[in-house]
Simulated assay, not measured.
Amino acid sequence: TICFIGIPFITAYNIISSIFRGLGDSKSPMYFIAIACVCNIGLDYLFIGALGLGPAGAALGTTLSQTISVIISLIVIRKTNTGIKLTKEDFKLKKDTIGNVLKIGIPVSLQDGFIQISFIIITIIANRRGLNDAAAVGIVEKIISFLFLIPSSMLSSISALGAQNIGAGKPHRAKLTLRYAIILILCSGVVVIGIVQLIAPQLVAMFDDSPEVVRLGTQYLRSYVVDYLFAGIHFCMSGYFCAIERSGISFLHNSISIVCARVPISYIASIKFPTTLFPMGCAAPCGSLLSIIICVIAYIVINKKEKTEAIQNG
Rank of each mutant, 00 (worst) to 15 (best):
S145T: 05
L161E: 05
M30F: 11
C286M: 12
I72E: 14
F241T: 01
P8M: 02
S247E: 04
I68T: 03
I124E: 10
S291Q: 07
V38Y: 04
V263S: 12
S69G: 13
A200I: 06
I144D: 06
A36C: 15
S153M: 03
L277F: 02
V259K: 08
T82Y: 06
V70G: 00
Y220R: 04
I125H: 05
G217W: 00
F20N: 00
R78G: 11
A126D: 08
A200S: 13
V137M: 04
G113M: 10
A59E: 09
K175F: 09
C242H: 12
I150K: 10
I75D: 13
L53Q: 14
A135W: 10
G162K: 01
G57A: 01
S69Y: 03
I139E: 00
K175L: 09
Y13K: 12
G167I: 02
S291A: 11
A284N: 09
S28Y: 12
I98C: 09
K103G: 08
V70K: 02
D112E: 11
S159G: 07
Y13H: 15
L290M: 14
A243I: 13
S223D: 07
N100I: 13
G49E: 04
S257V: 08
L110C: 15
I19Q: 05
A243R: 04
A160Q: 00
K92P: 06
N313T: 11
F241M: 10
I121S: 02
L161W: 03
V70A: 01
V191F: 11
F32W: 05
E306P: 06
